[in-house]
C-alpha cells in the first residue's frame, strides 16, 4: 500500500471514528432504556410535534427553495453576491439571534400586530415554530438544489422551448425531473436541520400550544430532562431521538430510491 493511500485511509478512519464514537457511546449507554423512552407518552408527543414542525419547514424550504435556487443558478444580476450572503445568514448567526429576529419581526413589530389581528399566534405556537426553523433550514435546501440546477445543461431547456414548450412547461418537464434527487436531498437536509433545532425554539416556541396542551419539541424536551432529571434521563431520550431520526432517514432513502426505480 502506498504512503498516500495509507495516509488517506488513516485520516478517513479517524474522521469516521470522530463521528461514530460519541454516537455509539450514546446508543450504548441509552440502549437499555429505549423501550422506556418510547413508552413515555409525553416523549412521543414531543417527537410528533418535532416531526410536524420539521416537515412543514421542509415543505416551505422546498417550495421556496426550488424557484430561488433556479434564479440563483440561471440568472446573473447586480445584487447577486449580496443575496447569496443574505441566504447564508441563518448558517452564520447564532440560532438564538434568529429566534429573537423572528419574535421581533413576526410577533412584536412589523408584521406582528397584523398577524395578531388575523389570529396568527407566533409565541409558543405552531406558526412561530415553523417560521423559526424554516428560516434556519431553507438555506440547506436552496444550496443543494442550486448545485443540481447549475449542473443541468441549459441547452436542454432551450431545446424544449424551441419545440414550443412554454417556460413553465420546460421547467416542469425538463428541469424538475432532472433535479428530483437534489430536491429530495434538500428536503431531507432541511428536515434534519429542523429536527435538531433548539436555540431558536428556546426563544420563539419553548413549547407548542395545541388545544389545551403544551407540547415540547424534542430538543427542548431533552434539555429539560438533562437539567431537571439528570444526565441518565437525557441519555435515554437522546438515544431514542437519534434512533428515531436514523430510522426516518433510512425510511426516506429507501422510499426515495423505490420511487426513483419505478420512474426509471
Amino acid at each position: 500500500m502506498s504512503l498516500f493511500k495509507a495516509s488517506a485511509i488513516s485520516v478517513f478512519s479517524l474522521t469516521v471514528g470522530f463521528f461514530l464514537y460519541p454516537l455509539l457511546l450514546l446508543m450504548y449507554l441509552g440502549w437499555g432504556s429505549l423501550a422506556s423512552a418510547f413508552a413515555t407518552r409525553s416523549f412521543l408527543q414531543s417527537l410528533g410535534i418535532t416531526v410536524a414542525i420539521s416537515t412543514l419547514a421542509s415543505a416551505v424550504a422546498v417550495a421556496s427553495g426550488i424557484p430561488t435556487a433556479y434564479v440563483l443558478a440561471r440568472y446573473e444580476f447586480k445584487l447577486k453576491p449580496l443575496v447569496d450572503a443574505v441566504l447564508d445568514i441563518p448558517i452564520v448567526v447564532p440560532h438564538t439571534v434568529v429566534g429573537l429576529m423572528v419574535v421581533l419581526a413576526f410577533a412584536s413589530y412589523g408584521l406582528g400586530p397584523a398577524l395578531g389581528e388575523l389570529g396568527v399566534q407566533i409565541i409558543d405556537a405552531l406558526p412561530g415554530a415553523v417560521i423559526a426553523v424554516s428560516y434556519l433550514s431553507a438555506t440547506y435546501a436552496i444550496r443543494t438544489i442550486e448545485s443540481a440546477v447549475r449542473l443541468l445543461d441549459p441547452e436542454l431547456e432551450n431545446a424544449a422551448r424551441s419545440l414550443g414548450a412554454s417556460p413553465f412547461r420546460a421547467f416542469a418537464e425538463v428541469v424538475l425531473p432532472s433535479i428530483r434527487g437534489a430536491v429530495l436531498d434538500g428536503a431531507l437536509l432541511s428536515w434534519a436541520r429542523s429536527v435538531s433545532e433548539a436555540g431558536a425554539l428556546l426563544v420563539v416556541a419553548y413549547y407548542v400550544i395545541l388545544g389545551n396542551s403544551s407540547i415540547y419539541p424534542a430538543s427542548i424536551y431533552i434539555y429539560q430532562a438533562y437539567i431537571g432529571l439528570g444526565i441518565n434521563e437525557a441519555i435515554k431520550y437522546s438515544a431514542a431521538l437519534v434512533l428515531f431520526v436514523l430510522a426516518a432517514f433510512l425510511a426516506f432513502r429507501v422510499a426515495a430510491s423505490r420511487v426513483g426505480a419505478k420512474r426509471r
Binding site: 407518552r41 416523549f43 415540547y216 424536551y221 431533552i222 429539560q224 430532562a225 434521563e233
Partner: peptide
C-alpha cells in the same frame, strides 16, 4: 409539575 415524562 410534570415534564419530560416525570412529575416532580
Amino acid at each position: 409539575w410534570t415534564e419530560a415524562g416525570r412529575t416532580k
